[in-house]
């Protein structure tokens, strides 16, 4: 067997952007992160679920369900955000440390394809993680709903139930079968993807993963202040001040708009237009931040 037997690669003068290459890198990134034992988060999530559903059983059904919903949504938010930030921050440094980035980027691969593959892989993984957690969450909610409803009925059937009992059951359904929960989880996912993109951008110029993680933590902590930054920007009279504040405002995404936990628990209806607008905002932000990351990465000396 010899190498001559193989057809030499055809002469090419140009090389177009290839989604297939992005996909190869994305799936590889997913494998990489999964091999980092990231899926153990499901155990954490399960523990949070058990805690939430057992802590508040002595209270009214509303409080019990509220605590489950609070805990689950908070756990989804926290765990996806952590995976997004920490997982993404490790990607580039580990590629550089293992020198795999050299073997990839010296192949006919565009740097933007590499970066996009990394971000897409991470987002796909987070999608999977979010779905699994949501399914667990839904299962616990339904089980709890069944228990609470049968408790409320106390052996009678729904048709024979009295007015207040029916009202109780409806109130239980309003909490457990709330379509707004799905919207809330969806927005939490959008937030996680935005965090992936931002972390990737930071790690294109950061010198270590620790540095990226710290920067992202600061951004995450400051995110609730986005509204205030927005107000201050509007009230700033001088152009120079506005430009200065613009940079600060640019760094702080409005993550609180994507956290609807409180309102969903309080039974507020979340308008579809709101979900769309917030998703659009997150998508554009993700895109812009990714573009910045790509600009910097393009010029990065490895």
């Amino acid at each position: 067997m010899s190498l001559e037997a193989v057809q030499p690669m055809q002469e090419q003068d140009s090389l177009s952007f290839s989604p297939a290459r992005v996909w190869v890198i994305a799936t590889n990134t997913m494998t990489e992160v999964i091999r980092q034992k990231v899926l153990y988060v499901f155990i954490l999530f399960g523990l949070a679920l058990c805690g939430a559903s057992s802590f508040f059983t002595q209270f009214s059904f509303n409080e019990e369900l509220k605590s489950i919903i609070d805990t689950c949504l908070a756990a989804i938010k926290l765990l996806t955000a952590l995976i997004a930030v920490v997982g993404t921050a490790m990607l580039l440094p580990s590629e550089i440390e293992n020198r795999t980035i050299y073997t990839i980027l010296t192949k006919p691969v565009y740097r933007i394809e590499f970066l996009l593959g990394k971000v897409a892989g991470m987002s796909l993984l987070l999608f999977f993680v979010t779905i699994v957690m949501s399914v667990l969450f839904g299962a616990v909610l339904l089980l709890d709903e069944k228990a609470l409803v049968s408790h409320a009925l106390q052996g009678t059937s729904l048709l024979q139930a009295s007015d207040p009992v029916k009202q109780t059951i409806n109130a239980i359904y309003a909490q457990t079968r709330n379509p707004n929960l799905i919207k809330a989880i969806f927005l939490l996912y959008a937030q996680a993807v935005l965090l992936v993109s931002m972390t990737m951008m930071v790690s294109t110029f950061a010198t270590s993963s620790l540095f990226s993680i710290i920067i992202m933590l600061v951004i995450y902590m400051c995110a609730p202040l986005a509204t205030i930054a927005n107000e201050v920007w509007k009230s700033q009279p001088s152009i120079l001040g506005r430009v200065g504040l613009m940079f600060i405002s640019f760094c702080i995404p409005d993550l609180s708009s994507m956290t609807l936990v409180d309102d969903v628990v309080a039974g507020k209806h979340v308008l579809m237009s709101y979900v769309l607008s917030t998703t659009g905002y997150a998508a554009l932000y993700t895109l812009v931040v990714f573009a910045l990351g790509a600009f910097i990465f393009q010029e990065k000396e490895l």
Binding site: M9, Q12, L15, N28, T31, E32, E97, N98, R99, T100, Y102, T103, T106, P108
Partner: peptide
């Protein structure tokens, strides 16, 4: 397109 590199001390995945 026609270049292959063996880096120093490679590790791979």
């Amino acid at each position: 397109l026609h270049v292959g590199l063996l880096p120093e001390n490679p590790y791979f995945y």
